[in-house]
Nucleic acid binder design. Sequence first.
DNA 1: AGGCGTTGGCTAATGATAGTAGCTTTCAGG
DNA 2: CCTGAAAGCTACTATCATTAGCCAACGCCT
Lengths: 190, 190
Amino acid sequence: MARAGLSRDAVVDLALRIIDEEGGAALTLAAVAGRAGVATPSLYKHVRNLAELNTLVSVRVMDELADRLREAVLGRSGDEALRACMAAYRDYVTGNPGRYAAVIQAARPGQDDVAKAGGRVVDIMLATFRGYGLEGADALHAVRCLRSAVHGFAVLESGGAFGLPLDLDASYALLADMIISGLPSPARQR
Amino acid sequence: MARAGLSRDAVVDLALRIIDEEGGAALTLAAVAGRAGVATPSLYKHVRNLAELNTLVSVRVMDELADRLREAVLGRSGDEALRACMAAYRDYVTGNPGRYAAVIQAARPGQDDVAKAGGRVVDIMLATFRGYGLEGADALHAVRCLRSAVHGFAVLESGGAFGLPLDLDASYALLADMIISGLPSPARQR
DNA sequence: AGGCGTTGGCTAATGATAGTAGCTTTCAGG
DNA sequence: CCTGAAAGCTACTATCATTAGCCAACGCCT
């Protein structure tokens, strides 16, 4: 019998395809095995267990997101960079409805899953705030606020929590204004 | 054999106790049945299925949260009310680590779970913004931003995503400043 | 070419879980 | 007391994750 030629990465690819097409809830080892044309236990040759697969998927998604953010802020600075970063974040989440939701769903406290996977995202945000002259603790607080705002909006939007027929772009623009206007600007003043 | 005397509400109570003591992942019909001293299928007399139980739990939690918010803003207005509202939100989430996480985990897009359960929370926030003279679309956009910020922060904090040893209260205070400073204030200006 | 070890895949089996069907018992109200 | 609905129960099915242990394919090295 010819081998399926699976690999750790191939398994994650299949998992992502399932998430995209059927939603995060459909991500099961049986489903992955089905797509791979393989018996379920065979997957354990490539992945420790379902939890690890979830982690791998999360890391992949966060890396993808970080790439988008990096591209977005490239060559920009200040307000422009920040707005571009926020827009890219939302575009990624709404453009890949299942993927971001899967990361959230998979995030179990106690693991540093999210923390590790989100490291690059944090770095990009930090670099963006450096364009405002923010350094040290100020920058870190600002990153926390930005992440909260952007992540919260993304979660609520993709979860359908914003039910009213009111322009979402306008809401998001206001959110960006809030962050920018509330930013400490020590570099300019000192 | 004496009856256990269960009810829809009693089942939800047990579910909440499990969530508090063992985390949201431990919420299973078998676990609830065990605590109730009843066989698993008996629960179906009170609850349609696990999904419905999750919804009921979410509604209960959001109601509880709304109560806290209502108490917090009572007798306050403007910045003071807004800050109190935000503080109460975070206090609830950090004070009940499992509960809020369970709501997030249970939120499946496609259902209006979150939307319905969060209705009272939205109303309270709307009322708070009315203290700034915000009405109509402006107020609704502001509520979306507030929800995003506060929910995002809560999720990230309780998920351990803020790894650095940096004062969380200070970050949250900055978030509040951002929202307040970015608020449109038509009532004062017009 | 041939041998051999690693690796990837398989079958079989276990245990947890959600959910259904259908029977029985309790209990409250007439 | 009787009776019917509500609340339990047992038995059963189906789906998963996960483990154990077997076997075949592939690459490499002579």
